[in-house]
Amino acid sequence: MSQGPDETVMNFWDEVITDMEATAAEYRDNGWDVIEVHPGDVTPLPPDHERFGLDILVPDDEFDTVSEAVETEGTSFDSFEVFRASTGGTVFLVVAVEDKNSGQVVLVPAFYAVREASDTLAGVRERDELPINLRPLSVDEVVAFEPADPGPLLPPGEK
C-alpha cells in the first residue's frame, strides 16, 4: 500500500511548480494566454479503467477555465511541449498543451511513481498513448488531452 509521496518527492514537486510558473511567464512574454492548473492529486489509471492515463484532480475554478477554453469554437489544443525530470523512481512533468491558432496554452504539472504506475505504463506501450485527464472533484466532467506521441511523458529511456 502506498503511503503517499515522501519528503524528497514533495520538495522536488515544489521545484516543478516553480518551473511551471517560470514557463508560464515565458509564454506570457511571447504573447500567449496562459492557463495554469494546480493539481490536488495525480493518479495513473490502468488501461482497463474508463479514464486510462493520468487522472489529474484540479480545483473547480481552474477546471472551468480549461473546459471553457477547450469548448470555445475554433480552438484545437493539439500541440504539446513536455518538460520532464526524474528522480528516485518518480517522473515529474510540466505539460504545455497549446492551441497555436488562439495563442492559448494550458500548463499541467504532474508526477507519478514509476513502480506504482507499472500497469499504466504497460498500457502506454500497448496503446501508444497516454491521455492526460483533468477533472474537478466530481468525476462528472473530464477534459482529456491526448498527445500524439506519449514518449516524452514516460520515464527517461523508455520507448
Rank of each mutant, 00 (worst) to 15 (best):
V142L: 06
E62C: 07
Y112Q: 06
A110M: 03
V124W: 02
S2W: 14
A85F: 07
S76N: 09
D55V: 02
P5T: 15
D149H: 07
V124G: 02
E15I: 05
R127C: 06
P47L: 13
E141C: 03
R28W: 01
A85D: 09
V58Y: 00
A122R: 13
F12L: 15
E21P: 03
W13D: 00
K159T: 15
M1Y: 13
L130E: 03
G74L: 05
V143I: 11
K100A: 11
L137M: 11
P150I: 09
F77K: 02
P39A: 13
V16D: 00
V70M: 04
V37G: 09
A148G: 12
V106N: 01
D140S: 08
P5H: 15
S76L: 08
F111A: 06
E158S: 08
E26K: 14
H49D: 15
P152R: 04
E21K: 13
D48C: 05
P152W: 06
T18C: 09
M1K: 12
E146D: 12
R125P: 02
W13M: 04
D99Q: 06
R125N: 14
A69Y: 02
T120Y: 03
T18N: 10
A148L: 07
E73M: 14
D60H: 11
D61H: 09
P136M: 03
L57R: 13
V143P: 01
N133A: 12
F111E: 02
D119I: 13
T8A: 13
E146I: 15
P147R: 07
N101K: 07
G31H: 08
D140F: 05
D78G: 14
D60Q: 15
D128H: 10
H38T: 14
E126I: 12
V95F: 05
G123H: 02
T75F: 00
N11I: 15
S86C: 12
A25D: 06
